[in-house]
């Protein structure tokens, strides 16, 4: 029995609700992408602007990292569709990302390095 026949027999949906292809209508429009691109450009300009502002270094680091996290998330959520796509992809990707951040933070700290 193929998976499709099995699902038909049990009355299960053939395509998962959150799987790609089940929601073509949910794809953002081209206009939306351009708007996001614009926001990304503005944030980048703000980052470069901040670089030239004379301010407390720790505050600068916090601000710059916050802005890059926003940019990063926007690209991942919209351009890479994680906001609309199956949750498994988000789990896998955030898993890899979180693991990276945690183990290398510990390793750098153990070796006496720091971000500031």
């Amino acid at each position: 029995m193929t998976l499709a026949e099995y699902r038909k027999k049990r009355g299960e949906p053939l395509i998962r609700e959150d799987a790609d292809g089940a929601h073509d209508d949910k794809h953002p429009s081209a206009l939306k992408y351009v708007q996001i691109g614009l926001i990304l450009a503005i944030i980048t300009a703000a980052e470069v602007g901040l670089y030239y502002v004379d301010m407390n270094f720790t505050l600068l680091v916090v601000l710059l990292i916050a802005l890059s996290v926003v940019k990063f998330s926007m690209v991942v959520l919209w351009f890479m569709h994680l906001k609309f796509d199956a949750s498994l992809f988000s789990v896998l990707f955030t898993g890899g990302l979180a693991l990276t951040v945690v183990v290398f933070t510990v390793a750098i700290a153990a070796l006496g390095g720091s971000l500031t």
Partner: peptide, 14 residues
């Protein structure tokens, strides 16, 4: 076999 049959995977993901 329809297209949907052909694309079946356990998770429904390609």
């Amino acid at each position: 076999a329809t297209a949907a049959d052909h694309l079946q995977t356990s998770t429904g993901l390609d």
